[in-house]
C-alpha cells in the first residue's frame, strides 16, 4: 500500500481565475454599531414553517434574519450581551431554533445557547458552560463538544441536546495530555471525533465509550493546525487542515490548506496535497471554512480565496470590496451560498 506524496496544487495566476464563479445575490447590512465578528446560516421554524435564516454576530449583539422575497432580509430576533463580547457562532447541526455562541475576550469564557420562548416568542439565552474553554465544536446528532481547564485538569465534554434544544445529557471523553486546539468530525462516522493539539498531534476518540484511541504526530513543518474536514476511505483517514503559521516557501507559494492521509492503525501519515495561493497573491490563512469539497479562506491580505479540493487548485479570488477587507467567510449550511463578512457589519451573500 503506497500513497502519492505531497503534491503542490497547481498555481494558476490571478488572471486565469474565473471571477464569474462567484455571483453576488444579496447584501445584509447590520446596523449595530459594534464590530462584526461572525456569520452562520441555519434553519429556524416559526408557526410550523421552517426557513433558511442567517445569524449575524457583532461584539455584543447576535441577530437572526429571515428571508423575504427578492433576497431581502428581516431581522426577527436579537440577543444582547452586556459583559463578555461574542467571539464566534457555534452552529449545532440537526438542531432547529437553537444556536450556540462562544463569548470571551482572547479566550472563550462562556458558551451560551440562544433560543426563543415558545410561550411569548421572546429571546432567551442559557449558560451552558463557563471557565477557561479552549475549543468548541457543534457535532451532528445535536451534540456539542468542548475542552476546558488547564493541562493537568483538562476536561473534554460532550453535551447532547433534546429536540427542543434543551441540554439533555453530558458525557466526558478521556483528555489527551496536551492542550486541544480544535475538534473535527469524521464524515459518516458519528462515533469518531478528531482533535488537533498544541504538540502537533491529531487525536481520535470513540464518542460512545469516551476512549482516546490514538495520538498521531503530524509533520512539524506546519504548527497550530486547524482541522476542517475528515473522512475515512479504504482504511485510511483523510484530513483537511489549515495553517495560519505556514511561511511562504519559494517553490510552493503560500500553503493555506493541506490534505494529509493517516493510517490510524500505525499512525504513519503523509501530505497528499498543498492548497496554495495563486501566483501574484500574498497572505496567510486568517480564517476559513470547508464544506463538501470546497474550501474558503480569508487571508491576512484581506482577500478571500476559494479552492476546489478535488481539482486541487484555487478557483476564485474575491478582493476587498469598497476598500473594506474581508474579515470572515462561511459556507451556508442551508444551501450552496458563501457568506462573506466585513468588520463594519456588511454581509455579502454569493452564489458559487
Amino acid at each position: 500500500h503506497s500513497i502519492e506524496q505531497t503534491k503542490v496544487a497547481d498555481l494558476p495566476t490571478c488572471d486565469s481565475l474565473n471571477p464569474g464563479s462567484l455571483q453576488l445575490i444579496s447584501k445584509l447590512k447590520n446596523p449595530s454599531g459594534s464590530c462584526s465578528v461572525d456569520v452562520s446560516a441555519m434553519w429556524w421554524e416559526r408557526a410550523g414553517f421552517k426557513e433558511p435564516c442567517i445569524i449575524t454576530a457583532c461584539e455584543y449583539v447576535v441577530s437572526l434574519w429571515r428571508p423575504l422575497d427578492t433576497w431581502q432580509w428581516e431581522k426577527i430576533y436579537t440577543w444582547h450581551f452586556t459583559e463578555v463580547p461574542v467571539l464566534q457562532i457555534v452552529p449545532v447541526p440537526d438542531v432547529c431554533n437553537l444556536v450556540c455562541v462562544a463569548l470571551g475576550s482572547l479566550e472563550i469564557r462562556e458558551i451560551r445557547a440562544l433560543l426563543c420562548s415558545s410561550e411569548d416568542e421572546s429571546e432567551k439565552q442559557v449558560l451552558l458552560k463557563s471557565g477557561n474553554i479552549k475549543a468548541v465544536l457543534g457535532l451532528t446528532g445535536r451534540r456539542l463538544v468542548s475542552s476546558s481547564g488547564t493541562l493537568c485538569d483538562q476536561q473534554v465534554e460532550i453535551m447532547t441536546f433534546a429536540e427542543d434544544g434543551r441540554s439533555k445529557e453530558k458525557q466526558f471523553l478521556m483528555p489527551p495530555e496536551e492542550t486541544i486546539l480544535t475538534f473535527g468530525e469524521v464524515q459518516g462516522m458519528q462515533e469518531a471525533l478528531l482533535g488537533t493539539t498544541i504538540m502537533n498531534n491529531i487525536v481520535i476518540w470513540n464518542l460512545k465509550t469516551g476512549q482516546l484511541l490514538k495520538k498521531m504526530h503530524i509533520d512539524d513543518s506546519y504548527q497550530a493546525s486547524v482541522c476542517h474536514k475528515a473522512y475515512s476511505e479504504m482504511g485510511l483517514l483523510f484530513v483537511v487542515l489549515s495553517h495560519s503559521c505556514a511561511k511562504e516557501r519559494e517553490a510552493l507559494g503560500s500553503p493555506v490548506f493541506q490534505l494529509i492521509v493517516i493510517n490510524p492503525k500505525t499512525t504513519l501519515n503523509v501530505g497528499v496535497m498543498l492548497y496554495c495561493l495563486p501566483q501574484g497573491q500574498a497572505g496567510r490563512f486568517l480564517e476559513g471554512d470547508v464544506k463538501d469539497h470546497f474550501a474558503a479562506a480569508v487571508l491576512t491580505s484581506g482577500t478571500i480565496a476559494i479552492w476546489d479540493l478535488l481539482l486541487g487548485h484555487c478557483t476564485a479570488v474575491l478582493p476587498p470590496i469598497s476598500d473594506q477587507n474581508w474579515s470572515f467567510v462561511k459556507w451556508s449550511g442551508t444551501d450552496s451560498h458563501l457568506l462573506a463578512g466585513q468588520k463594519d457589519g456588511n454581509i455579502f451573500i454569493y452564489r458559487y
Binding site: 500500500h1 503506497s2 500513497i3 502519492e4 506524496q5 503534491k7 462516522m189 462515533e191 469518531a192 481520535i204 470513540n206 465509550t209 476512549q211 482516546l212 484511541l213 490514538k214 475515512s232 479504504m234 482504511g235 485510511l236 483517514l237 492521509v261 493517516i262 493510517n263 490510524p264 492503525k265 500505525t266 504513519l268 501519515n269 503523509v270
Partner: peptide, 23 residues
C-alpha cells in the same frame, strides 16, 4: 511521484482501535 509506506491498513480500524483501547 514517489510512494510512501503507511504500514498495514485495516478497513475496520475504528473498531480494532476501540477493542485495543478496552484491553
Amino acid at each position: 511521484c514517489s510512494g510512501a509506506d503507511l504500514g498495514p491498513i485495516s478497513l475496520n480500524w475504528f473498531e480494532e482501535l476501540s477493542s485495543e483501547a478496552s484491553l
